[in-house]
Simulated assay, not measured.
Amino acid sequence: MPDAPKTGPFGLNPIRIMILAMGALVLLISIGMFLGGPNAYQALKEANAAATQPTAEQLSGE
């Protein structure tokens, strides 16, 4: 009878691969939440565009 090859304590099996994949997914979601998502990026672009345009006070020379 051949013995099953022993894997070390850090060997990958299907359950550990699934846990690693779930951890990676949680990490991606956390990074997305930290950065504010796509809506925050759109708001940042709009604020940058508004900041580069002169205001009414600047146009009147006051």
Results as ranks from 00 to 15, higher is better:
Thr7His: 09
Asn39His: 07
Leu25Asp: 02
Glu62Lys: 14
Ala43Ile: 01
Glu46Met: 06
Leu25Arg: 03
Leu35Glu: 09
Pro54Tyr: 00
Asn13Leu: 11
Ala50Met: 08
Ile17Val: 14
Lys6Leu: 10
Val26Asp: 04
Gly32Phe: 02
Glu57Gln: 05
Val26Glu: 02
Tyr41Lys: 13
Gly32Val: 00
Gly23Leu: 15
Lys45Ile: 03
Gln42Asp: 11
Leu25Lys: 04
Ser30Tyr: 11
Met22Val: 15
Met22Asn: 11
Glu57Val: 01
Ala49Met: 05
Asn13Cys: 06
Leu27Ile: 06
Met33Phe: 04
Pro14Gln: 07
Ile29Cys: 12
Ser30Lys: 07
Gly36Pro: 06
Asn48Asp: 13
Asn39Val: 08
Val26Met: 10
Phe10Ile: 06
Gln42Ile: 15
Val26Ser: 14
Leu12Thr: 09
Leu25Trp: 05
Leu27Trp: 02
Pro5Thr: 02
Glu46Asn: 10
Leu35Met: 11
Ala4Ile: 12
Ile19Glu: 12
Ser30Cys: 06
Gln53Asn: 12
Ala47Lys: 10
Pro2Thr: 12
Lys6Trp: 02
Ala40Leu: 11
Asn13Ile: 06
Leu27Phe: 05
Leu44Val: 04
Leu35Arg: 11
Thr7Leu: 14
Phe10Met: 13
Phe10Asn: 15
Ala56Arg: 06
Phe10Gln: 10
Ala4Tyr: 06
Arg16Glu: 05
Pro14Ala: 04
Met33Pro: 00
Gln53Lys: 12
Gly11Ala: 14
Ser60Thr: 13
Ala24Trp: 13
Phe34Cys: 10
Ile31Tyr: 05
Gly61Thr: 01
